[in-house]
């Protein structure tokens, strides 16, 4: 197993907010872009407030999961743009795999429970 993957595994599991922020950064976005994307991705079920996002970003930097990717100018204001680092990409991949596994295993159990209920 590569060193990068080991390092990525240490960052798991992600909190729900972190998960949404990271999967939003599959494409570079500024802060508001992240918030909008999370709302859209989750079909309005999850919202990330600005206080939560502002607190989460420095942690993700510290963990080496995201990096600055220049600035974007909108309405005369410059906004920092963020992107996933190599480590960040590994973390997203591993977390998605982990959740898929959990969901698959859970589905088997859920089906069994449903059948029990029918009987």
């Amino acid at each position: 197993m590569s060193e990068l993957e080991d390092q990525a595994r240490n960052a798991l599991p992600l909190t729900e907010a972190t998960y949404y922020v990271l999967i939003s950064l599959v494409e570079p976005r500024h802060g508001y872009g992240i918030m909008q994307n999370v709302t859209a991705l989750s079909e309005n079920k999850v919202r990330i407030g600005p206080g939560t996002l502002y607190g989460a970003l420095p942690n993700l930097f510290k963990q080496g999961l995201i990096e600055r990717a220049g600035e974007q100018e909108t309405e005369g204001e410059r906004r920092k743009v963020y992107a996933l680092t190599k480590l960040g990409r590994s973390v997203v991949l591993l977390e998605c795999e982990r959740l898929e596994t959990l969901a698959r295993i859970g589905r088997q159990a859920a089906e069994k429970l449903r059948e029990e209920r029918k009987e």
Binding site: A17, R47, I48, G49, G51, T52, G55
Partner: peptide, 14 residues
Amino acid sequence: SPEIHTDPESRMAM
């Protein structure tokens, strides 16, 4: 009401 903190982690951090 809209919230500026949307998860328990960031509320605790504050």
